[in-house]
Computed example of a mutant assay.
Amino acid sequence: MDKIIGYLRYQSIRKSFFIIVFIMAIIVIMLSVGTVGICTRIHDNILLSKAFVINPVEINPSNDGTFKVSGSIVEENESDTYTDREMMICRITEVMIIICPLLFSFLGIWCAGSIFYHIKLKKPLLLLNQGISHISLNDLEFSFDYQESDELGCLCSAFEKMREQLLENNVQMWNMIEERRQINASVAHDLRTPITIIKGYSEYLERNLVKGVMAQDNILDIVIYMKQAANRLEDYANSVHDVQMLEDINLEYADVELIDLYNEIKSSLEIIEQELGKQIKVINNLPNISVYLSSTAVFRILENIVRNACRYCENLVLVEISLIDQNLIITTTDDGKGFTEQDLKKALNPFYKDKGQRDHYGIGLTICKVLSQKHGGDIFLSNVQNSGAKVTVKIKVK
């Protein structure tokens, strides 16, 4: 029995339904035929036992040498000799001959439906109902344990994928909220200094200009300081705007020859090398094929991670470009001090800056993170033993 149930569990709903109905139909037919046969035999035995009587027969010789038979051995019994018990049994059997097939049919339908429900429907429907209840309570920390490959198994698998996607979306949403909170906190902190400078100098001018005790040179110096603080505010506001715009950017994809991409990358890095006065070495491991990607995103990512490496290196930045499993891998390694433990945890956060750097706004690696994730990849930070920092960017290509 367990083997039959196990077999039915792995069949499609349609096939399982027909198998169960077919088996129950055979059982109903067998029970109906057996019951009708037994009732008919009982009914006929009672009727036939009283329907005829056996009379004696007379055999007389005739003149021509033959024998003449007179009378009948069997003849109808015209007398009413049935007992009440026999009549009741006859009526019951007549009713059973009509009722039993109908009763067995209804019982067969009920049994087939009940068996089909318990084998094929009960568990997946219960799991789906529980899943809907969890989702309605914003609880996505559950999973479906239903491994059958029938239609409801496919439905449960699709429901599980939907749950995983909802959970992933919720995690991303909370990460975005946390990033926004960090951005707001960073903006509030970094804007405080230029605002304080502008406010302090404006109050100083307000007090001393009225008294007429300030020289023209001092006034000019203060105006220059205030302008520098205002420029810093403007640059910072532009940086915040750039980070927010990245979340809504749409990448433009196109077929790109990797050999052409490498030549353009090499030319761009030569310009950065001359601009920053650092040595940039490129290792090309790209095959000579065409891939589908956003070259704009690739160049922007590459420029940010290379400039970031040049900012912290002693003299050399090594850039390696490869194509592995439909992923464009860009790795930069510098000969600097490497990432600190805090850098490894927070360097990808917007506006993160270590204590020794004040000449940038800490959005370069954030830009790389957003663009690589929009391109189906990600960015990873690590340190190289006996060397400096290592940044690996993975970009999905087709």
Rank of each mutant, 00 (worst) to 15 (best):
L269Y: 10
R180V: 07
H360E: 01
E203P: 00
S322N: 14
A309M: 04
L48H: 11
D260L: 04
S49K: 13
N170M: 13
L121G: 03
P56K: 13
K355S: 13
S16M: 04
T40R: 05
I222S: 07
H241G: 00
S267T: 03
D334I: 12
E168S: 14
T35R: 04
D80L: 09
N169P: 01
T331V: 15
N250F: 08
I272H: 06
V69T: 14
E86I: 09
G338F: 10
Y7E: 02
I330T: 13
D248M: 03
P194H: 11
L155Q: 02
E148N: 08
G377L: 03
G338N: 05
I13Y: 08
F299Y: 12
A347W: 03
K211L: 12
F159L: 02
Q279D: 09
E275I: 06
I20W: 08
I135M: 15
S105W: 15
M88K: 03
G376E: 04
L318Q: 12
S387E: 13
M162C: 07
K15W: 12
N263S: 07
M88E: 05
H375N: 11
L269A: 02
K68M: 12
M88C: 01
G277Y: 07
L365F: 15
D235M: 07
I219G: 04
Y201I: 06
I97C: 04
S136P: 00
E178C: 07
A112R: 01
E275C: 00
V223Y: 14
K390S: 11
G364R: 02
T196I: 14
L166T: 13
R311M: 08
A51Q: 05
A237D: 11
E78D: 03
G153P: 01
I23E: 02
P61S: 06
E320R: 10
Y236K: 00
S133Y: 15
Y292G: 00
N238W: 11
G356M: 10
N208I: 12
V319P: 03
D44G: 02
E234K: 04
I198T: 06
D359E: 04
A237P: 00
C310H: 05
I4G: 04
K281F: 15
N231G: 07
Q216R: 06
I265R: 01
S387I: 10
V306F: 13
E252A: 07
I177G: 03
L125W: 07
V291T: 10
E206W: 13
L328H: 05
E86W: 07
F159W: 10
L233V: 15
E234G: 01
Y361T: 06
M176N: 13
Q274H: 12
I329C: 05
P124C: 10
L125A: 05
K227A: 12
V171P: 00
L344K: 08
A230G: 03
L261R: 01
T366A: 02
